[in-house]
Design a protein around this nucleic acid. Structure first.
Lengths: 240, 240
DNA sequence: CGGAAACTTTGATCTGGATCAAATCGCAAT
DNA sequence: ATTGCGATTTGATCCAGATCAAAGTTTCCG
């Protein structure tokens, strides 16, 4: 293992990683079996507790990760403490900014997660020699760009109620549906995190959630578990 | 010329394009001279008037462009007419979404512009065979992603005054400075467009501009020409 | 040159979401 | 069970920015 353990061991449990060899993750799908074996030799499966940082804003990082399980939030913080979540990532997304060592944002596990960590040097070398991998990472960047721009519309032009509905819709999209129309899931974010994603306050988020509940669009159990009886109804609230 | 003129001639003047052969633009820098010659044979220099569309939201497009001169705004519109500008692009940026025919946003010239238009098929083929080009487009996508996320922070967490200052700062960044500290430029956007970029109304934009003027951070001539005597002062307003 | 249309500023008022302030809930530790 | 604490909800009030309404400016075209 050539990953300095000081970099990755302070917030989770390290176990040997065989997952990449099993072709999980955005990166692994684009590699040959010999590359996979090499990457596997140098990667670590890491459990990350909810709330712990994977990459710090402004810090240099010498590794990348694939998300194997859980939800990761990408966050920007201003000097005065104001905070904006600029993206959510789900398995099997790739975490890390190719080609640039310093990160302009932090990546933090929103739920208990598992990631597969591998060294930047090795992957950068593989990218150069593997057009398919370059393409795969390019695709992920374009996907994230689309998501970011869609969210800019939400932040700039939607009302608080539409914002909360948009968030529920986004998360519901990553849960497997119960039936043709209904979906249920656990929120991976606290009210404070939802507020930081939507550019609102926790009070407004809470009020809009109870509004949605009272109007029958969602049911809420234990603050965290959301049931959407009819996804179409949720979509109609977003006018998109 | 194998670009259907119906696609590109309705809003500008077409002239034969030699600019790509001269290695302008994000795309052209990554091509060999024989590829440049081929691309040049199939590209058109097009003049685009301010306000005319380059790509329509939801439409399929069979061409890409390089911006040679001018400013292009990327815009998302909701069914009810609410609108959000999700990015500004300057020469020599690339316009178009690689690999995906249908655009989720519209690209429109904000100022009178010149773009170099070339066929999607040809460039897609060149991307596959030219890792350097793939890398160059990947870099542009990552740059746009950083810009989008930076703007999400602005939309979600900054005040109206900070938003307007952020916009002026963004545009000033793309103008060449007058002296070490001072910069001057013509705004490429109307107040309505600024409002759609910042998630505000035109009245609020106008009021904040006069506030900045009265506090001496900027001078305004003819509504459109902005003079920033001290860029540091502008940056301090953004707290970033 | 005139005059209309589009853009911008300015003023008055309103309101959606922020802020301030308690309750209430749920859960972990004792 | 009890306590204590963080997360959430709910209520009361406030205010930044929206909305409504004129009144300038500028541009452009006949």
């Amino acid at each position: 293992m050539d990953i300095a353990s000081s970099e990755v061991s302070d917030a989770g449990t390290l176990v040997a990683c065989r997952s990449c060899q099993a072709r999980h993750g955005v990166v692994c799908g684009a590699l040959s079996s010999s590359q996979l074996r090499e990457l596997g030799r140098h990667s670590l499966r890491r459990k990350v507790d909810a709330g712990s940082e994977i990459i710090a804003q402004g810090a240099e990082s010498s590794f990348y990760s694939n998300i194997m399980r859980g939800v990761v939030k990408l966050c920007k913080v201003m000097p005065d403490g104001r905070q904006q979540i600029v993206g959510l990532q789900f398995a099997p997304d790739f975490v890390g900014r190719p080609f640039v060592r310093e990160s302009t944002l932090s990546a933090e596990a929103a739920t208990d997660s598992e990631i597969c960590v591998f060294p930047r040097n090795l992957l950068d070398r593989m990218i150069s020699g593997t057009p398919e991998l370059q393409r795969s990472l390019h695709d992920q960047a374009l996907k994230e760009l689309d998501a970011a721009r869609e969210w800019m519309l939400t932040l700039g032009r939607r009302t608080a109620e539409e914002k909360v509905a948009s968030l529920l819709h986004l998360i519901a999209t990553h849960a497997e549906p119960q039936t043709a129309t209904s979906t249920a899931f656990d929120l991976p974010l606290t009210r404070a995190e939802i507020a930081d994603f939507l550019g609102l306050t926790i009070e407004t988020v809470s009020r809009q959630m109870t509004r949605l509940r009272k109007s029958g669009v969602i049911r809420i159990e234990n603050f965290r578990h959301i049931i959407v009886p009819d996804m179409d109804e949720l979509e109609r609230m977003i006018s998109a």
